[in-house]
Design a protein around this nucleic acid. Structure first.
Lengths: 105, 105
DNA sequence: CATTTAAATAAGCACGCGCTTATACGTCGG
DNA sequence: CCGACGTATAAGCGCGTGCTTATTTAAATG
C-alpha cells in the first residue's frame, strides 16, 4: 500500500507513458523506440530505466540489442490502489463491471 | 485518452495522495487537513488546488470554511487508461473480477 | 467596528526531473 | 583486429515543483 509514488510518477511523464503504450503493443529494442520518438536515444534509455525501476517494463538482451517489453504485473500496485478506494466511486465500479463483461466475448 | 498526465502527476506526490486518501474517508475543511499533516496550510491549499484542477476533488464553501471532498468521477481517466491496457494483464482482470464479487454482499 | 480566524495568493528558494551532448562499454561484421 | 553499431552512463542545463514565510481577502466574534 506504500510507494505507489514511483509508479504514478513514472506514468506521469508523457514521453514515458507513450513509450509504455508503445511497448504494450509488442516488445521493441531501444533503437526502434529512439527512431519512433523524437527524443534522443539516451533520453529513451533513461525513461526505460525508470519504467524498469518500478517494474512496469523488463528487458531481454540479445547480442548488442536490448529488447524491452511490458511487465504484466507492473500495473498491479495501481490497480490495487484504485480498487482500495472503489467504495468511493460506486458508479465507476459499475462501469468497470461493464468493461469486464465486454471482455467476455 | 489524452492528458492523463495531470492526474498521474497529481497522485504522484506523496503529500497530495495522502490528502486525497484522507478525503476519501470523508470531507474535511482545510484547517483539519493542515492540522493532521505536518506541512503548512498554504501547502495544503496548493495541493488541494491541484487535486481540484484535475477533477479529483471538489469544494463546498460554508461561511469561512471550505470543505473539500473526493469527486467520484475523478478517477475515471485513470480507470479508463488502465482498462484500455487490460489485455496485457489478464490475471489482473480476474483479480478485479474477484474484488467486484466481494462487493456483492 | 476591531480583532481574530479560515483560506487563498504571492514571492522566493532548493531540489528534482527531463533533456541534451559527450563518452564509455560491449558486440557484431569487414 | 578494427571500425561501426546498439546501448548505457556521465555531466550539465533549464525549468517545473513543493515547500516556506508574508500578505491578502473574507467571514465570524467580542
Amino acid at each position: 500500500m506504500q510507494r505507489e509514488d514511483a509508479i504514478f510518477r513514472a506514468l506521469g511523464d508523457p514521453s514515458r507513458r507513450a513509450i509504455y503504450e508503445r511497448l504494450a503493443r509488442g516488445e521493441a529494442p531501444v533503437k526502434d523506440l529512439a527512431a519512433r520518438f523524437e527524443i534522443s536515444q539516451p533520453a529513451i534509455s533513461q525513461h526505460l530505466a525508470k519504467l524498469r525501476g518500478v517494474g512496469l517494463v523488463s528487458e531481454r538482451r540479445e547480442g548488442r540489442f536490448v529488447y524491452y517489453q511490458v511487465e504484466p504485473e507492473g500495473l498491479r500496485p495501481l490497480i490495487d490502489w484504485i480498487a482500495h478506494y472503489r467504495a468511493f466511486w460506486p458508479e465507476r465500479v459499475n462501469r468497470l463491471r461493464k468493461l469486464l463483461k465486454e471482455m467476455d466475448e
